[in-house]
Nucleic acid binder design. Structure first.
Length: 411
RNA sequence: GGGAGGAUUCCCGAGUGGCCAAAGGGGGCAGACUGUAAAUCUGUUGUCUGACGACUUCGGUGGUUCGAAUCCACCUCCUCCCA
């Protein structure tokens, strides 16, 4: 039996960080009904069946679903294998490449693995929309098409602009919003999640459901998360993303690199902290506390979510040592230096830097040394060849360390 | 179907026979500063080399030339205009 929190409390949690809810009163009523009947709400999220590599930007929506699962509700993730044949015309005009059935299945497996880093498996159902869409006959399609109008479909920004610019719009493309809406009918969605870019499609779902005699879903839009540069939306191709599978240390470091102005936003969109806790952090910032320390709490919390407390502690420890205190980390990789040492006992640092991966080429390695970016035991090095002793610590730039060792000694 | 213009080093973009490894900006990296970040300033940003220097690069292929990113031919792709 569901242990549900009071409605207003649920509302607060659901609304945290949300860009818009259409509309809150309906949501409240649905929550109320759900509590009354002891029936969880069905939260829908549609995803592309392309190969996933989830980052914190994708996670914004997923975390919100997780929070609702914690409240007792259930999620239905729809992998749009059928709609992918058309490709969401949102934004880009590129036609998407067709996926084979095998690719789709493989992607689905990867999805599952990544989704369950965030969602609760026992309250999540994963469905393909070909399940109900591929079987529709023409009569059913026409019935669906009859539930809306051309004018309504052409209201959508990208259709409108493409139409007035006399660009090609395939008739089948106009069906995309309808098919996505039909997904909501098929699973009887109570709430559909999405980024603000999904506005049109999700709102259409509300109309279509009504036409099929269902109660309209509530639209819950989450903002688009900015990447580490603080400006562009987080995306892998822009190189400003933080992957949910990323190494804990790297993750921590990247979060520490976001602009201060984004700290609260990240608390709201990337963590499951209660709104009251977020408020506490907001106050501490307002009271002039060093943003670095608040940001460290944020980084720790996010790393903990994906890698566990131990890893988060270790990542914080590492960051404090290397970045804040500018000291070598406790654990360093040993590097056997003997193959790069000549008869005079001089070691070729250029080779070492390349070998250790600290520099991509020997030209860059030389540059690094000439610019004072290389230190041996904290002393700047200005030569390419230099005698080293067993146990010396080589540092390249701010964050790369290795312990040099000679083969005949124990190390 | 007809016409015009493009394709340059990570990105944008200048270069129109030797002075070009190729201006400038962005981004990256390093140094200084510092509260992590940001901002600012400085340097650097094809490869190999201790250095001199050598080698590879300007959509593709072939050609002209002592010498081509720059000229010619063909090809591929992209953009725009007319029908």
């Amino acid at each position: 039996m569901l242990q549900m929190l009071p409605i207003h409390e649920q509302m607060r949690i659901i609304a945290k960080g949300a860009a818009e809810i259409i509309n809150p009163e309906e949501l409240q009523r649905k929550l109320h009904d759900a509590a009354g009947k002891g029936r969880p709400l069905t939260v829908k999220l549609g995803l592309d069946p392309t190969a996933p590599d989830l980052h914190l930007g994708h996670a914004v929506v997923l975390r919100k679903i997780r929070q609702m699962q914690e409240l007792g509700h259930r999620a239905v993730i729809i992998l749009g294998d059928f709609t992918a044949m058309i490709g969401d015309p949102s934004g880009k005009s590129k036609t998407r490449k067709q996926l084979t059935h095998e690719e789709t299945l493989r992607n689905a497996a990867t999805y599952k693995e990544q989704l369950f880093r965030i969602l609760m498996p026992e309250r999540t159902e994963i469905r393909f929309n070909s399940e109900w869409l591929s079987g529709l006959n023409l009569a059913a399609v026409l019935e669906l098409a009859g539930k809306t109008t051309v004018a309504r479909i052409l209201e959508r920004d990208d259709f409108k602009s493409r139409f007035s610019a006399n660009l090609t719009i395939g008739l089948h493309e106009l069906f995309y919003p309808l098919m996505q809406s039909y997904d909501s009918v098929a699973i009887q969605a109570d709430i559909e999640m999405g980024g603000t870019d999904q506005r049109f499609n999700i709102l259409m779902g509300r109309d279509i459901q009504k036409h099929y005699g269902q109660e309209s879903q509530v639209a819950l839009f989450m903002p688009i998360l900015e990447g580490t540069d603080g400006v562009e939306k987080m995306s892998k191709s822009l190189g400003n993303s933080i992957g949910i599978n990323e190494d804990p240390r790297v993750m921590f470091e990247k979060i520490m690199a976001i602009p201060d102005s984004l700290i609260i936003r990240y608390f709201e969109l990337c963590t499951d902290l209660h709104p009251d806790e977020v408020d506490l952090y907001r106050e501490r910032l307002d009271n002039g506390e060093n943003p670095r320390d608040i940001k460290a709490c944020l980084a720790h919390e996010i790393v903990r979510l994906y890698h566990g407390r131990q890893a988060a502690d270790a990542a914080r420890e590492y960051f404090n040592t290397v970045y804040r205190d500018r000291e070598p980390p406790k654990d360093m990789v040993d590097l056997d230096v003997s193959p790069f040492t000549d008869d005079q006992g001089n070691t070729d640092l250029v080779r070492i830097l390349v070998k250790s991966g600290f520099a991509p080429s020997s030209s860059e390695a030389r540059r690094l040394i000439l610019q004072g970016g290389v230190r041996l035991n904290a002393e700047k090095v200005n030569q390419f060849r230099i005698p080293v002793r067993d146990g010396d610590i080589l540092q390249a730039g701010r964050k790369h360390f290795t312990r040099l060792c000679k083969p005949d000694r124990t190390c």
